[in-house]
């Protein structure tokens, strides 16, 4: 660690000399590119963070409670204690993410000050603002945000998000909504891609999305940032399902440390995310993992108790 800190100081002057752009768009989105094909795991202690790193996680999400406990406990869920986040940052060499409440830009400022590598402006925490999300362009720290459809994804990107994830119902262990959102976003992209150019402005109006970003999607056939799945992933097969549908990597929240053998489950989900297209391999990977997390059927949760409807 000492080497890196000294190096950072020495490099600072060189960076000033050669006039580079720090924390710009390519560098922010670039880190998400590096996470592709990987698994990002929720952890609540430095020990869990080590287990995740050893299992091959590309990043960890530092939290006080995993989503299934937040759901069970109720009450207001906020940013985690900086002590907890710093403890996890010190414990691992992989990038560390942390959550701020929707619209709570001061929690975000605090996370940036702690050196968090990616901020999740997350519906899993209780929203701080019913109207506005954070202006994410104001930070060197990149952001990941949840989305259920192309409009929501492009609005978040318009606000500066450098990575998108689905908003599957967190803490349920039920994959159904992550699948719905991933399919919806990909279907919307196909609609945009197949539309003649004169229809793009009307599509932008219908999706409530920035026109320039709709044009960009029409040109490239994909989101302008990396697109992961999140919410309800509990088994290697769940991870592979989302990868085959077309996301670029997965977040696993409660699914690892609420299973009966977390180290084994973590390892298996990492393998499955790499070999998502190989059924023989997936069969091997899925053997003898113990119990997956106990789940709640997400379709039975009334809409006003769903987390995914937070934000717009």
């Amino acid at each position: 660690m000492a080497t890196s800190t000294n190096g950072a100081r020495g490099a600072q002057r060189w960076k000033e000399m050669s006039k580079p752009e720090v924390g710009d768009w390519r560098v922010k989105g670039g880190l998400a590119q590096m996470l592709k094909g990987g698994v990002i795991m929720d952890v609540v202690t430095p020990d869990q963070a080590k287990i995740a790193e050893d299992a091959g996680a590309v990043s960890v999400m530092a939290l006080e409670r995993v989503p299934s406990d937040i759901r069970r406990d109720g009450g207001v869920a906020r940013m985690s204690d900086p002590d907890l986040i710093s403890g996890i940052i010190d414990a691992v060499s992989i990038p560390v993410m942390a959550k701020a409440r929707i619209g709570h830009f001061v929690e975000a400022q605090i996370l940036e000050s702690l050196g968090v590598d990616y901020c999740d402006e997350s519906e899993v925490l209780t929203p701080a603002d019913n109207e506005y999300h954070i202006d994410k362009w104001q930070y060197k720290m990149p952001y990941v945000c949840g989305a259920r459809n192309i409009g929501e994804a492009l609005r978040r990107i318009g606000e500066g998000a450098a990575m998108i994830r689905t908003k599957g119902e967190a803490g349920t262990g039920d994959i159904v909504h992550a699948v719905t959102h991933a399919r919806q976003i990909l279907a919307d992209i196909r609609t945009i891609q197949n539309a003649p150019t004169e229809e793009l402005m009307s599509l932008a109006r219908d999706y409530q999305a920035p026109y320039e970003l709709v044009v960009e999607v029409a040109r490239t056939g994909k989101l302008p940032v990396v697109n992961f799945a999140a919410g309800g992933i509990a088994t290697p097969a769940d991870a592979a399902l989302l990868m085959q549908i077309g996301v670029e990597g997965v977040f696993v929240g409660s699914g690892i440390f609420k299973s009966s053998n977390p180290a084994k489950m973590a390892d298996a989900i990492v393998r499955a995310t790499t070999h998502f297209n190989d059924p023989d391999m997936l069969a091997e990977i899925s053997r003898g993992l113990g119990d997956a997390m106990p789940g709640i059927e997400a379709n039975k949760i009334p809409e006003d108790e769903q987390l995914q409807t937070r934000g717009w």
Binding site: T3, S4, T5, G7, A8, A11, W14, K15, S18, K19, P20, E21, V22, G23, D24, R26, V27, K28, G30, L31, S93, P95, E112, G115, D117, Y118, K140, M141, P142
Partner: peptide
């Protein structure tokens, strides 16, 4: 090789 020599993500950058 030393990893993360220039610091964390907020220190990531581009240069000529």
């Amino acid at each position: 090789v030393a990893r993360n020599y220039f610091g964390r993500q907020v220190d990531s950058f581009e240069a000529e």
